[in-house]
Design a binder for these strands. Sequence first.
DNA 1: GGGCGGCTCCATCAATGGATGGAGAGAGAT
DNA 2: ATCTCTCTCCATCCATTGATGGAGCCGCCC
Lengths: 216, 216
Amino acid sequence: MGQETIRVLVVEDHHVVRQGLVALLNVVEGIEVVGEAADGVEAITQFRKHQPNITLIDLRLPRMGGVDVIQRLRMESPNARFIVLTTYDGDEDIYRALQAGARAYLLKGMTSDELIATIRAVHAGKSHIPPAIAQRLAERMGTEELTPREFDVLEQIVHGKSNKEIATELDISEATVKTHINSLLGKLGVTDRTQAATAAIQRGIVPLESLRKPKP
Amino acid sequence: MGQETIRVLVVEDHHVVRQGLVALLNVVEGIEVVGEAADGVEAITQFRKHQPNITLIDLRLPRMGGVDVIQRLRMESPNARFIVLTTYDGDEDIYRALQAGARAYLLKGMTSDELIATIRAVHAGKSHIPPAIAQRLAERMGTEELTPREFDVLEQIVHGKSNKEIATELDISEATVKTHINSLLGKLGVTDRTQAATAAIQRGIVPLESLRKPKP
DNA sequence: GGGCGGCTCCATCAATGGATGGAGAGAGAT
DNA sequence: ATCTCTCTCCATCCATTGATGGAGCCGCCC
């Protein structure tokens, strides 16, 4: 191993970024970009078609998120190797991407050399998580998981609902809503609902985009 | 005009993105990239050195933000033309960038053709704001400005402070804090502090990054 | 089956937050 | 100058939120 060409699939919705990556990688000895995709669904068809050694993938994608893509493709091809390449979007996505089987996590803004070195390393079977991210993960480990119900309540809080509204929405009593809140405040390590909301956004537990839209 | 080469400066901190832009533009007839910068300070020195016709600039930059760079350079060179190129970071930055004198606003993810067409258009003296962004600006127009004091209070709210803590921090009475809150709730079009916090983050009035750090 | 732990649920009480009305100080306009 | 507008400030009253203690339920281990 290590002598044959590394076949790479690039999944990235931002046009210029994708073009930059492809241009950059195609001039590198021993690496060949065999396919490109601009959204999650396309990523899956391209993967099936080309069976790349390495898939370079953004997490924020139209149609189907990067985490779901990784999960799905690893079902079909357990040996598939993924390198997540993204701007920082909160700890939650990082965690889920690694859970789903990503081997490496790179921030946009890395140098070309880092990228190439990481591709070679992952192809050789290694993993690579940058120190800054490793530290966040370590922090996260200390935190407890929210129960499904607590998550429901947190989501409503982030969307600006009052306890009464949440009670109606979830069809439980207001007193119960308060219990869940009290519990999730403890788990998030905060003292009131406003801190809970900002923490949830910051960590990526509740995506910021969901704020614009009313719920369907 | 329109026959001479358009001299472009590219300011972008993400390495692969910058590289992609430069590679893309340098093969276009009539456009030449005369300089690159990876942060705001470097952007200013590069600008002074090369006096580009067009400056392509990201808003989120290390050391000095894109808005400040535009403001400063337009003081020195009122004819300088800026095209802002960024992922969506909230309405506030868009608004301020246009105020500072940016002529066009492009989202990363545009096609190469759009980018090139926009560069030519701006060089010819036109402006270009995509419909999606124009709509947001229109929405924003209806909203009132926050007073400095209201902004101070909002910032504290986003950072999870209680009214009592805010009062101490700003050295005013708790009752006064409540007045400011009441006023800013109205201006933001929300009904409680949690909604105010998420709205502030979403619109980019208070940057999300400020949440990690304690204040110096 | 009995016991145990986690999740969900509820009621009561103290603390916090939001609505309302109103006063003084400064900037700009007539 | 004085009028008016805006910003800043404050106090009182009612609504919402958060703390606390405790009950039923389900799945799991022994």
